[in-house]
């Protein structure tokens, strides 16, 4: 099997300040990679740099589409944006950043469909209902505006909006941050199901080790912009080798 995404020696600086440096990642189809670390450790910089939100200073990002290997940092901006709205998806921590608040729930879900050329209202509507169902939003809310939704519903709507075109790689930055614990659980459960059902490949950032333990197959532990340890998720959390990971696990994780 070929990795669907591989990142090699990626660096991103903000002036002299390190955003993230010397980062590597291999993501296979159907795999979830978690990125953990304390606030300011470079998680967001890293996920933004590999998803097209930020332009890294150096490094290589290869995306396997099935037919060809795409050198993500070398392709034209138009191809890059096309990839971003078809094969890739980005779920923001704050759903308001990923949704159009003045467009109905259904309209939000429809956008990616229409941007890949779907022009049949009836079919689009059907797809919207299917996805509302998948993310457990009542169908009767389809024409309501997102501003009338709760935080958890907004996040589920954002997930539907992003997944509707069956992208191959999903990036998520703290998708359950800022939500109540019970709402979090529901979203984690939803994500788990979708990952298996759609064979999604996911890079997920979180400072919450419990979230990563439940979702991720592999993990990258970041500190000061660098990966201090990476590997099989449960192995790194249960038998951490690096002193920082040991500290992180002992102070945060009491599962």
């Amino acid at each position: 099997m070929q990795p669907i995404l591989s990142v090699h020696n990626l660096n991103k600086y903000y002036g002299n300040q390190v955003g993230c440096k010397n980062m590597n990642l291999t993501l296979y189809p159907g795999e979830v990679v978690g990125v953990v670390g304390e606030s300011g450790s470079g998680k967001t910089t890293f996920i933004n740099s590999i998803s097209g939100n930020l332009i890294p200073d150096s490094g290589k990002i290869l995306i396997e589409t099935g037919n060809e290997t795409i050198d993500f940092l070398e392709i034209s901006e138009s191809l890059k944006r096309l990839l971003i709205r078809t094969e890739l998806a980005f779920v923001h921590q704050n759903p308001r950043d990923g949704l159009r608040l003045d467009v109905s729930a259904g309209g939000n879900i429809s956008e990616r469909l229409m941007s890949i050329g779907q022009r049949n209202y009836g079919n689009i509507r059907q797809t919207i209902f299917k996805w509302l169902d998948k993310v457990e939003i009542d169908k009767s809310r389809v024409d309501d505006f997102p501003r009338t939704f709760s935080g958890g519903m907004l996040q589920r709507l954002q997930i539907a909006k992003n997944l509707v075109t069956s992208p191959k790689i999903i990036f998520m930055d703290e998708p359950t941050g800022g939500l109540d614990v019970s709402v979090q659980a529901k979203i984690l459960d939803l994500l788990r199901k979708l990952v298996r059902e759609l064979n999604l490949s996911v890079v997920i950032v979180s400072h919450d080790l419990a979230v990563i333990r439940l979702l991720a197959d592999k993990i990258i532990v970041m500190k000061n912009g660098e990966a201090v340890e990476s590997g099989l998720c449960d192995q790194v959390l249960d038998d951490p080798q690096h002193s920082y990971t040991q500290l992180l696990v002992s102070s945060v994780l009491q599962v």
């Binding site: 901006e77 138009s78 944006r81 096309l82 709205r85 159009r100 467009v103 109905s104 259904g106 309209g107 429809s110 956008e111 990616r112 469909l113 229409m114 941007s115 890949i116 022009r119 209202y121 689009i124 024409d143």
Partner: peptide, 22 residues
């Protein structure tokens, strides 16, 4: 400007979608 340059016009149909829906 970028959306025009790259023919990213999905959003235009969102407007029509909202119209039909309403």
């Amino acid at each position: 400007k970028k959306m025009h340059a790259l023919s990213e016009y999905g959003i235009m149909h969102v407007k029509l979608y909202e119209d039909i829906t309403k």
